[in-house]
Design a protein around this nucleic acid. Structure first.
Lengths: 361, 361
DNA sequence: CTGTTAGCGCCTTCAC
DNA sequence: GTGAAGGCGCTAACAG
């Protein structure tokens, strides 16, 4: 007596008794036997394509039995057969960041709407974990992938491209090969920020960030440097402080900056956690915002207005990024031909608050 | 010519030419044919159990070929066969909360260490999504589940228990059936907080929270009410404000409280986002902390010290919660017998900052 | 219109 | 020590 037969007999018994044990998972075979048709017929009815031409009578019988047994197709068996799973993955470097969490949440909600399962993976800014996650998810049969990659390696991404696996890159643009890409205008917005600060009279402008493993940060620094060069700011390199992704790192960077013999009159901070550290340092040193120093921060967190001094922030269109990424991914998943890759550049938003002052020379 | 044969021939060709196309995924069959053994032999070697007794010679040949072809067992086929997948899921109501994100991150890192894949699902505090997520994940063959459930329904959880599926509940204790459970001492810590405020002379203490769909919040309210009853606080019910999980909701709740004819002299706030809203309201009304009102907040975010007034906070042992949950889950996944369920109660931490003042009567 | 057959890639008896 | 056979649950060609 095989397992399946036992299972079937169990169903049979309970059906005769009028009970229905909905938790026991029925298979195609079970449904087929109880209805008295071949499993493939049930399969056809389940999939419900028009051109299968099943008679209304048997179709109805099958549907009723499907409902009775609470039959649901086994996604694993289906994935093994079809190499399709109605699921996608997103790999982000830090689930604790409101930016990445917001993107993941947006995509998660939309996936739920369209009947896809989303698997979220956090790589903790670790390149090795990212590679493992890509490998693991693809081997587990996801249909597509959204990745916000960390900086160093790109071989695993390149492989995805070579295999024509559908994927979308968030927050990073590769130079030497094409991908679907969603980025923000970090360079431009940073450039404009410096320009704005210069227009207020600032000549020494600091820049504090975490690790250099994320593309947007490099772009911000590029924007900063472009502006510095154009507007003749001196010592710009010495005013750029990079460290780790931690409060302490932000704290230390800020302390170093403000204890210089010629400290900056304004600081641009990159990242939520770093901002916490910078503010901690300013409080500690009794440096008031914006009287003693102007501050503007890249952060997508909600609390910036309620800090001990409301901070002017640069934020991302988090929801749009998520939606665009998913839309693009779905187009590539659903297209048979080799769809051309696309790149979207979304704008950052600046929220002016009273953390920036004019400098009187 | 079947697909598999073609694939094999391709390998054969490239191997003869000395090339190795590592991206093409090899199967057991491929390895077997190239080595000249039966697939089942390869399978045995791969799984590497002692009692298989494969000769060292063939084992070595197989290992070499496995490496050469970069063979990795297909997790989907394996899952179909074994009903085991070396993966687990975590379902959380809000990935945007530092509390849940922190738990997920801790578990994610640990899973990576022990060779399990973690799938994170965000339900957006939506009961229906939670049910779908539970169903979806289990059907996709995860070996175990960690859930921080929202409040209303519990049938889907009960089903897991009845099926003896390994799972751990975070942040909720069911009354009428047993589960593995990790909770914090929210009731006690809230009780003690009120007691502390009373000891400082406070007699009207407000409580502001988001939705009532999370167990810890109900426990906090219970602790609040216990203390209110014990210490003879009046009108406690009228000082409890619940709403939505949004800044606006916190804002409105706070405005309502402080514009009462007898406003509270202290407020306990539950949740990060709600706290943002409350502080926004206090700023708007020019109510200073702690001179005009004392504030203490449940939040696991990092920024509380840097708010316009540093806030006394109650935080969770986020890392411990994650690690305990995973450890417990793994014990249940790996045990053959019916392991007894466990419940762990972890303590909250109170971080005193200058947001609380003594009341002079 | 529906049944039969043949796998997807793997593991697990049962043989020899 | 290893091979052969069967099947996890499903779908896709091919019949009829």
């Amino acid at each position: 007596v095989s397992t399946t037969q036992t299972q079937f007999q169990f169903f049979w018994k309970i059906l005769n008794e009028g009970y229905l044990y909905i938790d026991m998972t029925a298979t195609l075979k079970d449904v087929a036997k109880l209805v008295g048709v071949h499993p493939s017929t049930v399969s056809r009815v389940i999939r419900g394509k028009e051109n299968f031409d099943i008679s209304a009578k048997t179709r109805d019988k099958i549907f009723r039995m499907v409902e009775k047994l609470n039959y649901q197709p086994d996604p694993i068996a289906r994935a093994l057969r079809l190499k399709k799973s109605q699921s996608i993955g997103i790999i982000i470097p830090n689930i604790n960041s409101p930016y990445f969490a917001g993107i993941a949440k947006t995509i998660s909600n939309k996936c739920d709407e369209i009947g896809y399962t989303l698997f979220i993976c956090d790589t903790d800014e670790d390149q090795e974990k990212e590679i493992r996650a890509v490998n693991d998810l693809t081997r587990r049969g996801i249909d597509g992938l959204i990745i916000a990659p960390v900086q160093k390696a790109d071989l695993h991404i390149r492989e995805l491209a070579e295999k024509k696996f559908p994927f979308v890159i968030i927050d990073r643009k590769f130079n030497d090969f094409e991908t679907n890409t969603i980025i923000s205008n970090d360079l431009e917005v940073t450039y404009n920020t410096v320009k704005y600060l210069v227009s207020l009279g600032h000549k020494r402008i600091g820049f504090i960030c975490g690790k250099l493993n994320l593309y947007p940060i490099l772009r911000r620094i590029a924007g900063y440097k472009n502006a510095a060069a154009e507007f003749g700011l001196k010592n710009d390199d010495l005013l750029i402080m990079c460290g780790e992704l931690s409060i302490n790192s932000g704290f230390n960077s800020a302390i170093k900056l403000v204890t210089k013999t010629s400290p900056p009159t304004a600081i641009i901070v990159s990242g939520t956690i770093i901002t916490d550290g910078v503010i901690k340092a300013l409080i500690k040193r009794n440096i008031s915002i914006p009287d003693n120093i102007s501050l503007i921060a890249f952060t997508d967190s909600d609390y910036a207005p309620y800090l001990f001094q409301p901070i002017t922030t640069i934020t991302h269109l988090v929801e749009d990024i998520g939606l665009e990424a998913l839309k693009l991914l779905m187009e590539h998943i659903n297209s048979k031909e080799n769809l051309a890759y696309s790149t979207y550049v979304l704008k950052c938003e600046v929220h002016l608050r009273k953390s920036i002052a004019r400098i009187s020379n």
